[in-house]
Amino acid sequence: KVMEIKLIKGPKGLGFSIAGGVGNQHIPGDNSIYVTKIIEGGAAHKDGRLQIGDKILAVNSVGLEDVMHEDAVAALKNTYDVVYLKVAKP
């Protein structure tokens, strides 16, 4: 199931950690970017929809399929206060 989640960045950013990407696979044979941690009190935690194990398909208009881990981190960092995440639920 794919959904779009709109998050408003807090003082600590979006409030979640990711793993995965080309050269840094979270699941062997899979280059996808996965949510590995939700920080308590952060934007994602308060919103409640993003969960550990969700796959991040895109940030705003930037696709995160088959990208390097660093590029995924940069895509999440290089955002304004309002961030749209395209997410696939497991």
Rank of each mutant, 00 (worst) to 15 (best):
K86D: 13
V73A: 14
I38R: 01
D30Y: 04
G15C: 02
T79V: 11
G29D: 09
H26N: 03
G41Y: 12
S32R: 05
K37H: 12
H45Q: 11
L64S: 02
F16E: 01
F16C: 03
G23R: 08
N31E: 09
K89M: 07
V35G: 00
D71I: 06
G20H: 03
Y84F: 12
F16Y: 01
K6N: 11
G10P: 13
I52S: 13
L7P: 01
A19D: 13
K55A: 10
G29C: 06
D47C: 07
S61K: 15
I39W: 08
R49A: 13
L76N: 01
I18T: 07
G15V: 00
G29V: 03
M3A: 05
M3H: 06
I8H: 05
K46V: 10
H45K: 13
L64E: 02
Y84G: 11
V73I: 14
N60K: 02
L50V: 09
F16H: 00
P11K: 07
G13M: 04
I39V: 14
D54K: 00
N60I: 00
K6Q: 09
L14A: 04
G21S: 03
I52F: 08
P28C: 08
V83T: 13
K9C: 10
K12Q: 06
I5P: 00
H69P: 14
V82N: 13
V83N: 06
D54A: 05
K86P: 00
A43L: 07
I39R: 10
V2H: 05
V2Q: 05
N60V: 00
A72R: 01
G53H: 10
V83K: 02
D54I: 00
G10H: 08
Y80C: 10
I5M: 06
P11R: 08
K46E: 11
R49H: 11
A43S: 13
H26Y: 11
N78A: 12
Y34R: 05
P90E: 11
H69D: 05
G42P: 01
P90V: 11
E4W: 06
V22E: 04
D47E: 15
R49E: 08
A75L: 08
A74P: 01
P90L: 08
S17L: 11
T36I: 13
N31P: 11
V87S: 03
P28Q: 13
V67S: 11
G15T: 00
D66M: 08
Y84H: 10
G53D: 05
I38F: 03
T79S: 13
V87G: 01
A88D: 14
K77D: 13
V62Y: 10
G21L: 01
E70M: 13
G23Y: 05
K12D: 07
A74F: 07
K77E: 08
E4D: 12
G21M: 02
M68I: 15
Q51W: 06
H45A: 15
E70H: 15
S17F: 11
L76Y: 03
N78G: 14
G10Y: 05
Q51H: 09
I56M: 05
Q51K: 15
G29W: 04
E4M: 10
Y80L: 09
K55R: 12
S32T: 05
A72H: 01
S32P: 02
K1M: 05
A88C: 12
L7F: 12
N60S: 04
G29I: 03
P90Y: 15
S61Q: 10
V67R: 10
N78F: 06
D47A: 04
F16M: 06
S32L: 03
I52V: 11
G20T: 02
N78W: 06
A75G: 05
G63W: 10
D30P: 02
I5Y: 09
I18Q: 02
D54E: 02
V2M: 06
I56C: 03
D47L: 02
K55F: 02
Y34H: 04
L7H: 02
G42Q: 11
P28V: 05
V2R: 04
A75W: 08
L50W: 00
V73Q: 07
D30Q: 06
P90A: 10
G13K: 04
E65N: 15
I18S: 03
D81T: 11
G41T: 05
D66F: 09
L57N: 04
V35D: 02
V59Q: 01
P11N: 11
G15Q: 02
I38K: 01
